[in-house]
C-alpha cells in the first residue's frame, strides 16, 4: 500500500515553510479515565492541562478540548496504534476515529514565523503568551487550523486538506514583503 501513489494537497516548500510527511492521526474523545488508558497505550501522557501537547518520539498527543485529543504517530504505525489503543481502552467509553487523511501538516519556522502567523491568526503568539508546547484549534482568517508551537521559532499547523492551499498561499502572500 505504501507504494501506491498518494495525492496529498500540494504544499510548496519555502525558506520558512516545510511540508511534513504523511502521518497517522486519530481523533480521540473520552473521559479522563479513557485518557489515562490511552496514555499508557500510546506511551505519551495525554495532557490534562488545556492547550498543551505532549510528545514521545514520533508520537504526540495534543489537547484540543476537555474530552478531545489529537493523537499523531508515524504513518507506518496506523494499525499498531489503533490496535494497542483499542485493547487498552477495552470497555471504557471513548471514541477513536482515524483522521489521518482529513488534514495535512506543515511547519512554519524561522525568525519570521510568529510575524507570518499573526497576519491571519488573532491569538497572541508572543512566546510568553503562546509558549513552546502550547497547541490549540484556532483560526487563520477564514480557515480553521490546529496550531502547535514546537520550538521558539517553529510552529506546526494541522489544516483540513481542502483549506491547506488557502492557508499556505496567504502565508506566502504575507511573506512577500520579507523578501525585499
Amino acid at each position: 500500500m505504501s507504494k501506491l501513489k498518494r495525492h496529498p494537497p500540494h504544499i510548496d516548500r519555502r525558506d520558512w515553510l516545510a511540508p511534513l510527511p504523511a502521518a497517522t492521526r486519530f481523533s480521540f474523545r473520552g473521559s479522563s479515565e479513557a485518557a489515562a488508558a490511552a496514555s499508557r497505550a500510546l506511551g505519551v501522557e495525554l495532557s490534562q492541562v488545556a492547550c498543551r501537547a505532549h510528545v514521545a518520539g514520533e508520537r504526540a498527543a495534543l489537547w484540543l478540548g476537555p474530552d478531545e485529543q489529537l493523537l499523531i504517530g508515524a504513518e507506518s504505525e496506523a494499525a499498531t496504534l489503533r490496535d494497542s489503543l483499542t485493547v487498552a481502552l477495552g470497555d471504557i467509553p471513548h471514541s477513536l476515529v482515524d483522521i489521518s487523511h482529513r488534514q495535512v501538516a506543515f511547519v512554519v519556522h524561522g525568525a519570521h514565523a510568529e510575524w507570518l502567523l499573526q497576519s491571519g491568526c488573532p491569538l497572541d503568539l508572543e512566546l510568553s503568551h503562546f509558549p513552546v508546547g502550547m497547541c490549540t484549534r484556532t483560526v487563520f482568517l477564514k480557515a480553521e487550523i490546529v496550531l502547535w508551537r514546537t520550538a521558539p521559532d517553529t510552529f506546526r499547523l494541522e489544516v483540513w486538506r481542502s483549506f491547506a492551499e488557502y492557508v499556505t498561499s496567504l502565508l506566502a502572500e504575507a511573506a512577500i514583503e520579507l523578501s525585499a
Binding site: S27, R29, P93, S95, I99, R102, S162
Partner: peptide, 12 residues
C-alpha cells in the same frame, strides 16, 4: 448519552 462525533468529511 455516551456518544462522540468526529467530522470525517475530508478523511474520505
Amino acid at each position: 448519552l455516551s456518544v462522540w462525533i468526529t467530522s470525517t468529511t475530508e478523511q474520505w
